[in-house]
């Protein structure tokens, strides 16, 4: 490890602010790009499942072949 203390790692001889800002913003953007399609897919599947369930029950109330 190059830095001897946590303080040295955070400040990086005065460049800490720039380096950490760059890494933090990158982390946020990358996380957003990864998570948004996952959420979009999940929400779509839930939505479709609910819609299919409604359509199954709706026609005539049990006309789909209940006992």
């Amino acid at each position: 490890m190059y830095f001897d203390s946590l303080y040295a790692l955070l400040t990086m001889d005065g460049h800490g602010f720039y380096v950490w800002t760059a890494y933090l913003v990158t982390l946020i953007v990358v996380a957003m790009t990864l998570i948004s399609p996952l959420r979009r897919r999940k929400r779509f599947l839930q939505h479709l499942a609910a819609e299919l369930k409604r359509n199954q029950v709706a026609p005539g109330g049990g006309a789909s072949g209940g006992p």
């Binding site: 990086m12 460049h15 720039y18 760059a22 890494y23 990158t26």
Partner: peptide, 21 residues
């Protein structure tokens, strides 16, 4: 890149941004 490389002799630690830039 952040923890184990030594700083650039001219740019110091700011060069560490290279590993994402």
């Amino acid at each position: 890149g952040l923890l184990f490389t030594s700083p650039d002799f001219r740019q110091g630690n700011s060069y560490r941004i290279i590993y994402i830039h």
